[in-house]
Nucleic acid binder design. Structure first.
Length: 589
DNA sequence: GCCGTTTTCGGCCCGACTGTTTTCAGTCG
């Protein structure tokens, strides 16, 4: 059983307990544990099986939950969950995902109308039965009808790259309003999460009304969900919610901190404030009268920081923590030791080592890709078309590959000083194991990427062994998109990344962070694990056209979330330095 | 249900907005 399956089980328990109106802190404990499991690089099952580690070492997992998780792994089920499922109707989790409907209202709908699925609820609304229940009215009935569609697709979060396009347009649209003095887009977008659920815009403005009017006029707005004095929410075509908040200038930094999140980071942040006899909210940092016990009333108007985010952190004796690290995954202990890593930036990247041409499934020719790389300011690239197994992409056999390499040999003398093109290939790892091209061909390449494209449904053991076999090949330099996941579309294949990383370390191989917005594979958890093991990460665009060189920044953001610095990423090196790292991959152990 | 060199019991972040209320519960972020 995978960590994400365990996490989903714990989340379901949390939802069902919430529906039942159980102790909110017990509910939170299940959700915290789900999150902790999801954030672990190691499999929970492996920890249970090991001699030197315990699940209770994990923050948020105590004796009880450790036992429940062990039961879950051993038997595939959990008595508590079985009981809850027997008690609580199946569809209520979906009902609780309707905006404006929480556990209390879902429970009342069930008690009063025996509504237990989204479609039953739609029926009840259409027959105007919901408005007669206490706490509901005609308006909530209408909202629920609209929300059912949203609940049905609530799990679909937008790729960060797509959210970024919208965010840029919103920023342009709103900063053109003369009343707007400052504007920042906070939330998971600012943290660079791989997917974004909504956009949180923060502004300082002379007056709120013109900004809100402008937001209402933004092309694509289909609904104003709420509009108050300081806060407004709209929904765009396609369902993305945009929240706008107008805050006083003296509170902008505090609001930016607050609305950037994550929720988990903020909980820890506020607790830290409390420990220091301070209180933090979206208006600033305040001294609490009577000290840390907080028994006496707050002292209003005694804000000691708020206008700038850096000051808000400084008030809690912290350096400004980069948004990408704000997940309560250790950034506070980093920061307390004044050991915040200087995160990698897109400008640090010097080479792109995974790209395709018209020889396989790319849209631009070899020459076009080479020219565009120079225009992008890169110092080196590797041309890595598919190998023959990927017949749908017209993958290259030895003859065609050698022909392409001969072409590169011809182009090389024409290249400007200091620009290099590596003769590479993205060679498939075959279903039965082994590489798609013979060793004598791979030996002629400067750069061999190993990839799994087929046999993704094989067992964990089989896939892991295929990959390790590839990493043992002296000609292979790197493993591409190591888990094969496509965000929102395809789960990662079953692979023991712990073993894969051990093999990569042993054979001095590199691991790819694929910058395609749908892949972002390795994810930030495993990227951090690779860093910890000292395995060089290469961020690659996997460009299939000249435009896709621009995807590099999506990979860089993911790397930042993993805490990677320039030194952790091999393609930030100069070409000469990079060649040394490359040479090590060919050392036979 | 978790957590703890102040605690093994008693905490666990906090404010805005909505809808249906007659002063506030529920939801959300």
């Amino acid at each position: 059983m995978t960590n994400s399956q365990i996490a989903e089980t714990l989340e379901e328990i949390g939802d069902l307990l919430e529906f039942k109106g159980e102790n909110p802190f017990r509910i939170r404990a299940y959700r915290n544990a789900a999150r902790a499991i999801k954030n672990m690089a190691d499999g929970a099952a492996d920890i249970i099986g090991s001699d030197d580690r315990e699940l209770t070492d994990v923050e948020g997992i105590g004796k009880d939950l450790a036992e429940k998780i062990a039961t879950l792994i051993a038997t595939g089920q959990l008595p508590l969950l079985n009981d809850l499922r027997a008690e609580v109707p199946r569809g209520v989790r979906a009902i609780m995902r309707i905006p404006g409907v929480g556990p209390k209202k879902a429970a009342r709908l069930y008690q009063e109308l025996h509504v237990k699925t989204l479609s039953e609820l739609r029926h009840a609304c259409e027959r105007e039965k919901v408005r007669n229940i206490a706490g509901f009215g005609a308006k909530s009935e209408q909202k629920i009808l609209g929300g059912i569609r949203i609940a049905a697709s609530a799990d679909e979060r937008m790729y960060w790259a797509r959210a970024d396009e919208i965010a840029q347009r919103l920023r342009e649209h709103l900063t053109s309003v003369s009343a707007v003095k400052r504007l920042e887009i906070a939330g998971s977008y600012r943290r660079g999460k791989e997917t974004v659920g909504d956009l949180d815009i923060l502004t300082v403005a002379e007056a709120a009304a013109p900004v809100m009017d402008a937001l209402a006029d933004f092309p694509g707005v289909v609904e104003t969900i709420a509009r108050g004095e300081t806060k407004m929410s709209v929904r765009l075509e396609g369902g993305l919610q945009v929240d706008l908040r107008v805050v006083p200038a003296e509170a902008f930094g505090a609001a930016l901190q607050y609305f950037t999140g994550s929720k988990e980071h903020n909980v820890a942040f506020r607790k830290r404030a409390k420990d220091r006899g301070l209180k933090v909210n979206e208006y600033g940092v305040f001294k609490v009268k009577g000290g840390a016990d907080g028994n006496e009333a707050d002292d209003p108007g005694a804000s000691i920081a708020g206008a700038e985010e850096a000051d808000v952190y400084a008030a809690l004796d912290l350096p400004l923590i980069p948004p990408e690290l704000r997940e309560n995954r250790g950034e506070f202990s980093f920061a307390s030791q004044e050991d915040i890593p200087t995160l990698i930036e897109t400008d640090d990247i010097r080479g792109d080592l995974h790209l395709h041409t018209t020889a396989s499934d790319g849209r631009n020719s070899l020459r076009e890709m080479i020219e565009a790389a120079q225009a992008h300011g890169l110092a080196y690239i590797a041309v890595t078309d598919h190998s023959k197994r990927v017949n749908v992409a017209s993958g290259l056999d030895a003859v065609r590959l050698r022909k392409q390499w001969a072409e590169i040999d011809e182009i090389r003398p024409t290249l400007p000083e200091g620009f290099y093109v590596l003769k590479g290939v993205e060679c498939d790892i075959l279903e039965a194991g082994g590489m798609d091209l013979p060793d004598d061909v791979l030996a002629e390449a400067d750069w061999v990427i190993a990839s799994v494209h087929f046999g993704q449904n094989q067992s964990k053991e089989k896939i892991t062994q295929r990959i390790i076999g590839a990493l043992e090949n002296p000609h292979v330099a790197i493993l591409a998109h190591p888990t094969g996941r496509l965000i929102n579309r395809r789960d990662p294949y079953e692979v023991d990344l712990d073993e894969v990383m051990a093999a990569a370390k042993e054979h001095h191989k590199m691991l790819e962070l694929n910058a395609n917005p749908a892949r972002l594979d390795l994810n930030e958890i495993y990227c951090a694990a690779a860093k910890q093991r000292g395995i060089p990460v290469v961020i690659s665009t996997d460009a299939h056209s000249v435009e896709q060189y621009a995807n590099m920044r999506f990979g860089v953001i993911q790397a930042r979330r993993a805490g990677l610095t320039k030194a952790d990423v091999a393609n930030t090196k100069t070409f000469k330095q990079f060649e040394k790292t490359l040479k090590k991959t060919r050392r036979v152990v």
